[in-house]
Amino acid sequence: MIEVLGVKKRYRKKQVIEDVSFTAQKGEITCLIGLNGTGKSTILKGIMGLTPFDKGTVLVDGKPIDLNRVAFVPDHSTFPIHFTIEQCEAFMRDFYPTFDPNLFARLVDEFKLFPEDKLNELSKGTLAKVNLALGIAQDPDYLLLDEPFSGIDVFSKEQIVELFSSDIMEDRGVLITTHEIEDIEYLVDKAVMLNRGRIVREFDVEDVRFIHGKSIVDVMREEYGA
């Protein structure tokens, strides 16, 4: 389980993250929801150690994060744009011991990618799939995705959603941030809602449907008064 405990972060004058604590279980898909610019990415990057939190701690399975066990898929490519997919894979094999070339090959095939393509030749959707493939291929226990669906074409979205319900993602902990919940309404086990730097709601999606008959979008409407 990923535990985020009492985390605070300030950017210049404004306090972006007031006091955030939540958990994401292994084997579950947790979705961190919040309007744009409410610090969702900062929280993910903070968990990964890419951005220092001012206060608070992050524990993964009770211990400080082990980058062998947790992978991060940012909402933009992490390789120089003149790299080919093959070069990206070569880099990952060199420096990410848990990288599984077969898993990567399977994802490449599933996403119908062409290894010799250069990143700058790919559409935003394909690029997102490459990023995802590179992340998943690390065979991590936990996978953090930052806005995986923002601004990508419908078909790529579908392929990605399909992937999440497939065996590849089974019993991995997934933490997704998004502000467009429609795409993954049925995928999410648990929703964590962020507003003005604080966690305002943390609920099991199916329970809320069962008890209150409300979808995630409904709860969002209540919270954010969309």
Binding site: E28, I29, E158, E162, S165, E170, Y186, L187
Partner: peptide, 12 residues
């Protein structure tokens, strides 16, 4: 597994 993939919903 088949059902989750086909229905595109969460295996849980």
């Amino acid at each position: 597994r088949e059902l989750a993939t086909e229905l595109k919903i969460n295996p849980n």
